[in-house]
Simulated scan of single mutants.
Amino acid sequence: MKKFVSWNIDSLNAALTSDSNRAQMSREVLKSIIAYDPDFISLQETKLPATGPTKKHLEIMEDLFPDYDHVWTSSREGARKSYAGTMILYKKEFNPIVTVPHICAPEPMDLEGRMLTLEFDDFFFTTVYTPNAGDGLNRLKERQDWDKCYANYLSSLDADKPVIATGDFNVAHKEIDLKNPESNHMSAGFTDEEREGFTNILNKGFTDTFRHVHGDVEGVYTWWAQRVKTSKINNSGWRIDYFLVSDRIKDKVSKSEMMDSGDRQDHTPIILEIDI
């Protein structure tokens, strides 16, 4: 049985080095992740510079994660600085082949450090930070193109061996995946176009593990808006973070759920346990 955690951390630098109240809450979440003792930890929106973790970051990470190696990718020349970015930490017993995928997405998305993939003998593990459709849906067309490119990429991996895909997909797939669907049909993350894009991914041969395990349970979310102080208190959230697996290994999943992040708003970590 292997254990996975995925979390949009919204600035690894802040979580490791800041003294703000939010950073302290982030560190408490990291402690919860470490206590869970996963084999793999996927982080999105690390917001590190193009050169990656600094010496200070590495020293803190070595102290926090002594049993893990890590790989990272950041936004680089041609894209915004210290933007997006992903990282995967994995137990030192593993020796994966690491790739930073280029999926021919609209510029500059392939330069923003949005994806990492680890290859093992029996499966791929890939993480993604999906582009947001933007204020006023000004990037909806580019987002639609990304979704198609990403779906094709996952399908190409799946043709070789089973896939475990995780991350912040920036879409609530069904009306039960957010608290207030009626008022959000024209909001980024819940447009018909984005939902269709996610359906297309699933139709390529993938399973939303949370729904596979829990069915149509309602009121379970992974993200609560920071700008609305009562969003988490009122559980006015969205489920936009996922673990997807190739259909042929879906019945190997034993757990797919959210980790409690306490009072911290924004994203909460999600976990997967699978016999692979």
Rank of each mutant, 00 (worst) to 15 (best):
I274F: 11
F169H: 13
K161W: 09
V71C: 13
R76H: 14
T46D: 06
S18E: 12
T73C: 15
R248T: 03
H267R: 01
Y129S: 05
T191I: 14
K148Q: 11
H173G: 04
E59H: 07
V171M: 09
L43Y: 00
L58S: 07
A133H: 11
F124W: 13
D69I: 00
D260E: 12
G189V: 08
C149G: 02
S246Q: 03
C104Q: 13
D216R: 11
L64E: 04
F210D: 00
L118M: 12
V245D: 06
L137W: 13
Y36N: 13
N138K: 14
A188F: 12
R114V: 00
H185K: 14
S261R: 10
P162S: 10
V171N: 09
K148M: 12
Y90L: 02
A133R: 08
G189H: 10
S183F: 12
S236Y: 10
N200L: 02
P66M: 11
K161P: 08
T230H: 04
G205N: 03
W238I: 02
K2E: 12
R227M: 04
Y150D: 03
V213Y: 02
N184P: 08
G219C: 07
Y129F: 11
M109V: 01
A23V: 12
T130H: 13
R264N: 04
S75E: 09
W72M: 00
M1C: 04
L118P: 02
M87E: 01
D37T: 14
S6H: 02
L244H: 09
H70R: 04
D192T: 10
F169T: 03
M258E: 09
S236E: 13
D110W: 06
L58T: 14
G52A: 13
N180S: 10
Q144K: 11
A23C: 10
G205E: 04
E93G: 09
E107M: 10
N13F: 01
N8G: 05
P181K: 09
T230W: 12
V100D: 11
T130Y: 12
T127R: 00
R143P: 01
A172N: 11
T99V: 15
A15Y: 00
P101I: 07
K161D: 08
Y153Q: 02
D241T: 01
S256R: 03
R264E: 08
T17H: 15
Y90A: 00
T199W: 00
N235E: 06
D160L: 14
D67F: 05
T117C: 14
A188W: 13
P162W: 05
D122E: 15
E196K: 06
F125I: 12
L157P: 10
T191M: 10
H267C: 07
Y150C: 03
K255S: 06
A84Q: 01
F4D: 02
A165W: 02
A50P: 03
F40S: 01
I88N: 00
M109F: 15
L64Y: 15
D110V: 13
L64I: 09
A225W: 12
D168K: 04
R139M: 08
D147L: 15
T51D: 15
A15L: 01
K47G: 07
P131K: 03
K81L: 13
D275L: 05
G262A: 05
F198V: 04
I103G: 06
G52L: 15
I233L: 15
D19G: 09
T230R: 14
